[in-house]
Design a protein around this nucleic acid. Structure first.
Lengths: 343, 343
DNA sequence: TTGTACGCGTTATCAC
DNA sequence: GTGATAACGCGTACAA
């Protein structure tokens, strides 16, 4: 059941000329006579010839495909980012191979092994929440694989990075809550070592400090799996509800954590925003239709994907080794809705 | 900035033996002495040798990668299906290359051209809503590319298909509405020629007929782009609202149409389910948290992806040409919530 | 047990 | 203006 494709050999045989002539004619080389070119091109058309990308890859030592590693595509932020990645990749002649780490360090390493070994020309990655080690990435990078980080980055590998201003995002969000009369604000966050977790918490703390509110470590609840396991979020929210004095608002520091928190609050019949304000990162376009409609921090996911891909392809195609690396920081958008109404 | 990988040549040179010996030793061939094997394997380990998949592909005339074409990955149904696809593909040693048609026939054709020409061993596809022609698929199939259709299938290419019982899904949904006192039920559907659209409408009609309700063609509103353009859904809902007598319920026949309809109804301040019942296909896990919580028809997307991939890989790996094709029909689940409460 | 030679599809180089 | 050949990395039939 093989799929026998037409090769330049077939064309050469058909026309009784050599494969090199065919190859040159197809590439419109100046050394070939116009008649031969026409003949070859017509024949190629007729036989529906398509160059074999695999043979080209072998010869050129590049596959024209990009690897993408994200934790989960069924997550609005990542699926939008992937849209951005694809839009640029295809327009520049690259394939995209996507794989998911499911927030597991092991799967991230396995996928990376799979993607590397020269079947990809470059890598776009957002780290899994379990990835506190980056040796696997360092080693790939040292061996010369171009890498661009987006969203969940690491400082341990020197390359381009595309992120949002996480600090500012939570700083503004926290101020919004304080402005609206919320006094005791808790956070649900994923694994502590992640860049985004650190920056987001820093913005939150700064806003509190500026208002003279002493920061209480207990207000930060961690979900190691980033909300992939519902029980984890449930535990975090329950802990918040049991605190004394009880916080009056929650900030979800990732998409899953924000909607997960709402789910738990609703099931526990806690009124939002009456008993508990809620706000968080999310890129889902359903947040507007939720009950209550959610105040969210929206990331420019599509643009992040686009920019990261541009940077990656430039890295791949650059003749000279790149020494200066960009750290592109985009702005988030705070969309205010009912879940954080004035108290 | 090239990424120079270790090849069997390097190992051969290092050990002063031939490449074929290395090759055989690595594949644990019985013809090689245990000492040589050990030597080679140790050396491969030390140099971090990885076989070049591209060279293998060229040789074996297969790439061990599967192409996937869906309209959009930022859609819970498809992202869940892709999870299923990946889970099987990786476990059986295949890569997955995803591309999106964005509901455009042209992009579907372009992507397919890109994916084919032997860089993929097989194809999983759910048709774009604009794909009323299937010549591009027929031609690929005739040239021997194994294809499996899922969700939005066509009868024009003879191969495996994985779908849900669309007929039964809407039949049950319509009965649920009728049981709850809804009398005049309208549908919002995507392009008419799609298999899923036809089957879903058929189930709806059958339910009406069995209750002695004469079917009114005007109750069916079409969105050619499947809800990708918000204005399209808005127009459809507005038309429904203007009808006289006005329908008292809407069935959304795809994910985007269902949530899109809710969005329009809310913005027009139509009470759901008070003034208008709403129900539809959706795989988003946020539907439970919407206001009102949505009654949905849920498809087993993950399993569909898994089954389709199993079938595809079997097709690819089968020695003999496959003559009998499966038509796997899975069950949907009707999850009843507030948006269709008893009138 | 190991080595040599060839082929997968393509293009660059050199020869004619 | 065109053809022959080598090379990309690998596996294997055949030779030794």
């Amino acid at each position: 059941m093989k799929f026998e494709a037409v090769t330049i050999k077939d064309i050469a045989k058909e026309l009784g000329i050599s494969t090199s002539t065919v190859s040159r004619a197809l590439r419109d080389s100046y050394e070939i006579s116009i008649e031969t070119k026409k003949l070859v091109q017509e024949c190629a058309e007729r036989l529906d010839y398509r160059p074999n990308p695999i043979a080209l890859s072998l010869k050129e030592k590049r596959s024209r495909s990009l690897g993408v590693v994200v934790c989960e595509i069924a997550n609005s932020f990542f699926s939008q980012a992937i849209n951005g990645i694809e839009s640029i990749a295809y327009s520049r002649g690259y394939n995209v191979i996507i794989s998911q780490s499911n927030e597991s360090f092991e799967r991230e390493v396995t996928n990376l092994k799979y993607l590397s070994s020269r079947s990809i020309d470059g890598l776009l990655i957002s780290l899994s929440s379990q990835s506190d080690k980056t040796d696997h990435l360092k080693s790939l990078h040292n061996r010369g694989l171009p890498i661009v980080f987006f969203d969940r980055i690491t400082e341990e590998v020197l390359t381009h990075r595309v992120i949002v201003d996480n600090y500012k995002a939570t700083y503004e969000a926290t101020n919004h809550l304080l402005d609206n009369g919320y006094k005791r604000i808790s956070c649900i966050v994923n694994a502590a070592h992640l860049s985004i977790a650190k920056e987001r918490i820093a913005g939150y703390k700064q806003a509190l400090t500026e208002r003279g509110i002493t920061f209480d470590e207990g207000l930060i609840k961690r979900c190691q799996k980033g909300g992939a396991i519902p029980e984890e979020v449930e535990r975090a929210v329950n802990e918040i509800l049991k605190m004394n004095p009880r916080p009056d608002a929650i900030i979800g520091l990732t998409d899953k954590l924000t909607t997960g928190a709402l789910r738990v609050l609703k099931s526990r019949r806690i009124e939002v925003p009456g008993e508990m304000g809620l706000l968080g990162f999310s890129n889902s376009d359903l947040t507007e239709l939720l009950e209550p409609s959610l105040t969210i921090i929206r990331q420019p996911a599509f643009e992040m994907g686009q920019i990261a891909t541009e940077l990656l392809i430039n890295l791949i195609e650059s003749k000279r080794p790149t020494l200066e690396f960009t750290r592109k920081v985009l702005e988030t958008e705070l969309i205010i809705r009912q879940s954080t109404s004035r108290r």
